[in-house]
């Protein structure tokens, strides 16, 4: 059963409002480089995943993305995400020193599933980054986030990131999506 049959318009509007508030605030923390606070928004069992995308023939389109558990650009849990944040403050993390300037734009947001204390939120994003004098990167894609209510507060429990690029056109992926 889809969310639209399960819930009233008011309930859906309320959930979407909550999801928007959460994800906008999360994006703000990332763009403000408040990474420690960002970690506080993640559940203990967060899974953060960006598969590799490939160009395929239309008939082989099931091969477009690599599968969970296989090769990926990101396949992180709270431990590795914490390491990614920690390395930014210990020195010699050159990919981010000088720090990148990022802006997360989130759009086309929809709550696509609800279960118990969780909701699945789908959105489109653009992550825009500039570095140094005039270096510029832009990643556009779609996210599937699972938000879970923990002690009355929403937290991010899963993030699947599907980029539109096959060959990543940037020198690295040192930002959070």
């Amino acid at each position: 059963m889809g969310v639209d049959e399960q819930l009233s318009v008011q309930e859906r509007a309320h959930l979407r409002f909550e999801a928007e508030e959460f994800l906008y605030r999360e994006a703000e923390l990332l763009d403000d480089r408040r990474f420690d606070e960002w970690l506080g928004l993640l559940t203990e069992d967060i899974h953060y995943w960006m598969p590799i995308r490939r160009t395929t023939q239309a008939k082989d389109v099931h091969l477009e993305f690599t599968k969970p558990g296989g090769m990926a650009f990101f396949d992180d849990d709270l431990g590795t995400l914490t390491l990614r944040v920690r390395r930014l403050s210990v020195g010699r993390a050159w990919a981010e020193d000088p720090p990148s300037r990022t802006r997360h734009l989130i759009t086309n947001l929809r709550v696509t599933g609800v279960a118990d204390n969780e909701m699945t939120v789908r959105c489109n994003f653009q992550l825009y980054r500039t570095r140094l004098n005039s270096e510029e990167d832009s990643w556009i894609g779609r996210r599937e986030d699972v938000l879970r209510r923990v002690n009355g507060e929403l937290k991010l429990a899963r993030r699947n990131i599907f980029l539109e690029q096959t060959v990543i056109l940037s020198q690295n992926l040192s930002s959070f999506f």
Partner: peptide, 19 residues
């Protein structure tokens, strides 16, 4: 796990090489 986390553009080591 090591292959996904050490090298590649998001790898803990390799992300700092490109620049």
């Amino acid at each position: 796990f090591r292959q996904n986390h050490i090298f590649g553009p998001a790898g803990f080591l390799e992300q700092d090489d490109g620049e």
